[in-house]
Design a protein around this nucleic acid. Structure first.
Lengths: 212, 212
DNA sequence: GTCTATATTGAGATAGAC
DNA sequence: GTCTATCTCAATATAGAC
């Protein structure tokens, strides 16, 4: 955190660049997201930008990491309890619908990173596993309490949840009228969760259509 | 079908190329799927291939269409009744896990086609809507018969189903050990059960666990 | 209809001055 | 650390011969 020494300064600048890049992608969209465009946007030359990140692909991985960091901070994503998890997750999804460029970059990278040689491969594997672990833990808890169906294993439910989120992003990229959050929430409803704040199991339709 | 006249011959050749391209992508994988590589694979020069399809992107759309055509033929995909729909769908998914290159091409295109200007945009919109219609129809039927939960509208369930399939493809691209079909089937199981108030409906677990 | 050869474009990477 | 300039490469698209 201390900024003395050129090393720390470099780190700070990196962070600054990432924040800025993320911001620009969120606002301006992703388009042909070339190193050059991001460089322009953050006020550096292409060479200046690559000075910090070595290659385009490394840059993109770092941008995604920064995104995760910011999101985890903004919305409490690390809760291992069901309702906070559910709500936090929905908040992120709602937020995503305001940053299409970020969603597009993420989806594109996700496909490219399927190649084990790709610099983002490890990142996606780990991120993916981490999310599933959080889901699994809180779902299992809920299953034990009898509030979520135990017809399907928690691990599998977690995977389904993750798949729906990713899949809804694709549907939403194609047609922006789609309500990602509402659909994911419908899935939560399906799992048998008592709708967010009502006492017993109440009509699910009302509880959580996106509040933005 | 008759081959007289150069027009019909051209069409036949196109079909032949597409079949061949699809076959190659399925077998050899997708890699950096350039026009040139496909051209090599089908035994044409790059220019020769583009003679038929004008541009790379049009070529890819046509390959995807051909894929749909072949799949619809091989697995009865157009049934609007629930169980055939479910079984047919699972068969396609199982088949997909044997053609990673095709899955990768599809996923990649799906993201790129989110741009309304992209030549594949319309294709994806229509394909996507068509699949959802089939799902919706058969699900609604099942809901009326009380065999599928009515906690969530048929349209939304259809969307969830579609999202899970797409999302599982991403997960599977990243980690080939994932069982796409089993996970999607688990979702079907979930739909069939009335969670929380168990006793009423039939045990869904048995009905259709993968037969391959 | 198919090929060879080439134009064109666009990107990422790198060298070297300041 | 940052820039300008350039290299290199890959890929699509096109011209024109056969």
């Amino acid at each position: 955190m201390a900024k003395r020494g050129s090393y720390a300064k470099g780190v700070a600048k990196r962070e600054e660049i990432l924040t800025s890049a993320l911001d620009v992608i969120a606002r301006e969209g992703f388009r042909k997201a070339s190193v050059r465009e991001i460089a322009d946007a953050v006020g550096l030359s292409q060479a200046g930008l690559l000075h910090y990140f070595g290659s385009k692909e490394q840059l993109f991985v770092e941008i995604m990491r920064k995104r995760d960091e910011v999101d985890t901070e903004h919305f409490d994503l690390d809760s291992s309890h069901y309702n906070p998890m559910r709500e936090g997750y929905l908040r992120v999804i709602r937020h995503n619908s305001e940053v299409p460029g970020v969603v597009e970059l993420f989806s594109r990278l996700a496909v490219e990173a399927s190649d084990v040689e790709h610099p983002a491969h490890e990142y996606f594997l780990q991120r993916s596993a981490l999310i599933r672990e959080l889901f699994t833990k809180s779902i299992a808890e809920e299953q034990e309490a009898g509030r979520v169906t135990d017809k399907v294993d928690a691990e599998v439910l977690a995977r389904i949840l993750q798949a729906v989120s990713d899949g809804m992003q694709l549907q939403w990229l194609l047609d922006r009228d789609v309500d990602m959050a509402a659909t994911v929430d419908a899935l939560f409803t399906l799992l048998g969760a008592a709708p967010a704040n009502t006492a017993a199991s109440a009509p699910a339709g009302e509880t959580s259509t996106a509040d933005s």
